[in-house]
């Protein structure tokens, strides 16, 4: 069973994604910010990370760099409300990008792609 870590400050979003992915056979962990994510990464083996980014914030970027440096095996999907080209501009080395206003089916497809 693949493990997905959701990093998102919106509780409702975390709940929706958690339920969606659990229903589709994933083990799901959800945290609200980068520092909590750091703690989870120390204890758990994560396959896929859904990372929300806030444009002016730097903590998301720092988390991204930490994962890239120390957890090569983790696939990162950047998931935010920004258009995909803006997300790519911000974090060019992510494995995939997801616009949260798109359908959940698309998200599932993107996650399934790395499973």
């Amino acid at each position: 069973m693949r493990t997905v870590l959701i990093v998102d400050d919106e509780a409702t979003i975390r709940r929706v994604y958690e339920e969606l992915l659990s229903n589709n056979g994933y083990r799901v962990l959800a945290v609200e910010n980068a520092s909590h994510a750091g703690q989870v990464l120390k204890q758990e083996v994560i396959d896929i990370m859904l990372l929300d980014i806030k444009m002016p914030e730097v903590s998301d970027e720092a988390l991204f760099d930490v994962v890239r440096e120390f957890h090569h095996e983790i696939r990162i999907i950047v998931a935010s409300v920004y258009p995909i080209d803006e997300q790519r501009q911000r974090l060019p080395w992510a494995d995939d990008y997801y616009d949260k206003a798109e359908s959940l089916k698309l998200l599932l497809q993107k996650i399934a792609h790395f499973s």
Binding site: E10, I13, V16, L20, M55, V81, K100, A101, S103, K105
Partner: peptide, 25 residues
């Protein structure tokens, strides 16, 4: 404008997610 779009897209994403999830089964 980018701020406004972002602020409005978050609740929209939640609404869409909630509705799609509800229809799943």
């Amino acid at each position: 404008s980018s701020h406004v779009a972002h602020e409005l897209k978050t609740p929209l994403a939640i609404v869409r997610g909630e509705l799609e999830l509800a229809l799943e089964k």
